[in-house]
Design a protein around this nucleic acid. Structure first.
Length: 333
DNA sequence: CAGACAAA
DNA sequence: TTTGTCTGG
């Protein structure tokens, strides 16, 4: 899932106050939905579902998070993945295999009564399918939030939109948009709360990564950052066994990228991958079109159609109405 | 994950 | 007010 360059980015993660996040943001839609689907589950891994068995975890996550964004003056544009490049097919089939196996293990764990294992395997088996995407788009429309299908990778489209100034930053838990050239990437855009991870409690706060800071701090170019990605592995190539971000950084600084690559994987032609990061297919001339929240429509969709509690939904809708008055989302600031 | 509510 | 636990659909 994404390029694993976290360990060389720690110094460049800046805590971001919500006020500083006001503005337009290009969200990696598939990434956001995946997060909701993996985390919003019961203890045994069962997702939230309506009475017809349709998964609704993502709708819950989206609704409550988006209303928070509206309150905070963040105008999202959701970007969904389009057609993957040919060289991603190996990754895609590998992931599918992992998920199918996880689904079998989930059922098995449930049979044995191992709730925790069932939860873990349920998470691993999570897939963002067409039904999930379509229902999400429906909710976005009702909430006046624009979205688009990228011609190829969503992260590439998001990066392009940052570069063009169409949005102020991209939002994803993955770092790929940096390789695609996004000048600003925001992460952890969740309501801050303490999380307990093995007896330790830590607060997860929103953070911003600025590409220029990363590149000047590491003293590399974007091309070299892409090369680091290729060495350790991206969604589009496997990477070299035994090379992590630290070693990869040293390699590109020593200008040994081509040498190491040709020694380790002589049959691999990295150029198409590198070129894909530098010049991905994107849609130009995007103008995000924001609208007002259709409260009645949202209630109809979430409550009547999918069984959400009218009380809960309405109280949140009232809250944003009180704050925003008659303004549409984009007029907030 | 985010909201609601209880307990501290 | 802060922190922990439960539940949502």
């Amino acid at each position: 899932m994404g390029v694993a360059i976290r360990d060389i980015l720690t110094e460049y993660k800046r805590p971001a106050e919500w006020d500083r996040l006001r503005g337009r943001a290009a969200f990696d839609g598939n990434n956001a939905l995946y997060q909701f689907l993996t985390t919003i589950r019961q203890a045994d891994g069962t997702p939230l579902m309506d009475n017809e068995g349709r998964v609704t975890s993502h709708l819950s996550g989206l609704f409550f998070r988006l209303t928070n964004f509206i309150e905070k003056g963040i105008s999202p544009v959701f970007i969904f993945d389009g057609k993957p490049p040919e060289f991603k097919s190996k990754t895609i089939s590998e992931r599918r295999a992992v998920k199918e196996k996880a689904e079998i293990q989930r059922v098995e764990a449930l049979k044995v009564g191992d709730i925790q294992a069932a939860f873990r395997h349920a998470r691993s088996s999570t897939r963002v399918d067409k039904e999930i995407i379509d229902s999400s788009k429906r909710l976005l429309s009702l909430m006046g939030i624009p979205y688009l299908d990228a011609p190829s990778e969503g992260e590439a489209q998001a990066a392009f939109m940052v570069s063009e100034g169409i949005v102020d930053y991209s939002v994803s838990q993955d770092y790929d948009s940096l390789l695609f050239g996004a000048e600003k990437l925001a992460r952890n855009l969740t309501v801050s709360r303490k999380r307990k991870i093995r007896s330790r409690t830590i607060t997860v706060n929103p953070e911003i990564i600025t590409l220029d800071e990363v590149l000047s701090g590491l003293d590399i170019t974007r091309e070299q950052l892409i090369e680091i990605g290729i060495l350790i592995g991206t969604d589009f190539n496997s990477g070299i066994r035994g090379i992590g971000p630290k070693k990869a950084l040293k390699i590109v600084r020593d200008n040994a990228f081509e040498k190491i690559l040709s020694e380790s994987v002589p049959d691999f032609d990295y150029l198409p991958v590198k070129d894909f990061f530098l010049n991905p297919p994107v849609t130009e001339n995007i103008i995000p079109d924001y609208g007002a929240v259709d409260g009645a429509g949202v209630t109809e969709f979430l409550c009547a159609e999918h069984g959400f509690s009218e009380e809960r939904i309405n109280s949140v809708l009232e809250k944003i109405n009180a704050g925003a008055g008659q303004k549409t989302l984009d007029q907030w600031f």
